[in-house]
């Protein structure tokens, strides 16, 4: 290996990862839903930047004006939580979730196809159960025993309806996750066995 003490000029250094990979290349098996999730992703990504801004604002208010906000920490937590939840769906659509591929790598095309289909189906069923359970949770977080609509709040002085909103968002994401795995299963089944191998692992 080259061990020259003088480094190559910067242009020659390959980037650590393909920087544009984050904005495009949804695997074909994810279908149209995959593209929609991909299109939506910048909105939730922006939430992390907003969370950063909110924390800086809080530090500023507390330190310069001695007037800490009551909403900054709840809001940052909420924004991050929404990002984390959506991030799971985003990774599923782009097939970016971490896998241990020992068996998979040794498998022939037929077994690979079977594994791809099987994993998608199992994940779809699991997501379905979770979506159903999330629905039960959402009912408790949005409707009071007396039947009124009341989004569960944080209970603080700011008292934002973040818990209620987050639970609803989790429900929606789990439903989309189930649908995503459904389409992946269908598309893996339609594909010829070879195409399963060029997916990201």
């Amino acid at each position: 290996m080259a061990t020259s003490p003088i480094d190559p000029p910067h242009e020659d250094i390959p980037p650590a990862i393909d920087q544009d990979a984050a904005t495009d290349d949804v695997p074909a098996v994810s279908g149209r839903l995959g593209h929609i999730v991909n299109k939506l992703s910048p909105i939730f990504a922006f939430g992390f930047l907003l969370a950063m801004g909110v924390l800086i604002f809080e530090i500023f208010m507390r330190h310069v004006f001695n007037d800490p906000t009551l909403w900054a920490h709840e809001t940052t937590t909420f924004l991050s939580a929404v990002g984390f939840v959506f991030g799971g769906l985003y990774c599923a659509s782009r097939d970016k979730h971490i896998r241990v591929v020992m068996l998979y790598d040794f498998a022939g095309p037929k077994l690979r196809k079977a594994l791809d289909v099987g994993i998608s189906v199992v994940c779809m069923i699991a997501s379905g159960f979770f979506a159903w359970a999330a629905w039960l949770m959402v009912k408790r977080a949005t409707i009071t025993p007396s039947g009124d609509i009341h989004l569960e709040t944080t209970g603080s002085a700011f008292n934002a309806p973040y818990p209620g909103l987050l639970k609803v968002f989790l429900l929606l994401t789990l439903i989309l996750l189930m649908v995503q795995f459904f389409w992946q299963a269908i598309n893996y089944m339609r594909n010829t066995p070879v195409t399963g191998s060029d997916q990201t692992k």
């Binding site: 904005t23 990504a45 992390f48 930047l49 959506f86 991030g87």
Partner: peptide, 12 residues
């Protein structure tokens, strides 16, 4: 691009 990468990495 940095924010979207963050979304992906955090999702994982």
């Amino acid at each position: 691009a940095a924010a979207v990468q963050t979304l992906s990495t955090c999702g994982m």
